[in-house]
Amino acid sequence: MELARKWVQIVIGFLTNGYWAFPFTRTIYQGPLKVVCSPGLNCYSCPASTTYCPIGAIQQLIAGIRFNLGLGQYYLGWYVLGCIGVVGGFLGRMVCGWACPFGFVQEIIHKIPGPKFKIPRILRYVKYIILSVMVILLPLLAVNEFDMGDPWFCKYVCPAGTLEAGLPMLVIQPDLRAAIGHLFFNKLAILIFFVVWSIMASRPFCRVACPLGAFYALFSRVRLVRLRLNREKCTDCGACHQVCPMGVKFNESPNDAECITCMACMERACKYGAISLEVGGLPLHSSPLRKTTKS
């Protein structure tokens, strides 16, 4: 299953970043696929990106709500919210584990040898603050004289944008180098911070700062596809705690908002067949029952 997940991550990474003519055209993809939502955090100013980033798009729409209402245009973000809501309703944070390019990058970085640390669970709430303040409230309320707001998260924080768009654009369009200033260096520092943290901890950006992960986490109890714990078979041995890349204690909190359904607990940890994958309440696949009796 882990191998399958890696392949899915690679294929989706290529599908959402499939415009490889950019070194020759020296610009981003501008075709019709850009109306399709990327399930994961994937900057649409990335030269290779073929889809739109839901967090970037929703911020742009929210930032322009007042201006557009003044023009009689009702662009309230329903299309983008509907897209990620449908994805979230199906998969929830399974997207983070299987389809987010930036999550995949963090997983690769975490394989670099070095000291490994846990992330305090309290920090998980920071991403909800980022979602509500930087993605919704500030773009809506902090407007200029033309009633236009800014995409605060993209502009001041998003390390995925710096990695996938900022740095590549400076390479393919050298003229832009004259325009970089403290804003770029601040974002570069944020990117370096998360890269270094990713070496020491598993998926720190996903767990602490990702607003898209925070949105998908809201679906943890209502999503169609999820892992289920069979209480009768569970021995509370705690083996599932050891393998979880998100720090979830699955036997204590089977609907945890942090669960990215990577299935490591089901495949690699549980010896008692206590964890299964279910779709809408119906089991699809369960952890292999190994030759160990319940103690």
Partner: peptide, 22 residues
């Protein structure tokens, strides 16, 4: 409400300030 065309229009442009340039 016609949002897809607006999203397409936005995503076809490079937002330099959004990526920390300019």
């Amino acid at each position: 409400s016609g949002e897809p065309s607006r999203v397409l229009e936005q995503s076809r442009q490079i937002c330099l300030s959004c990526i920390g340039i300019g």
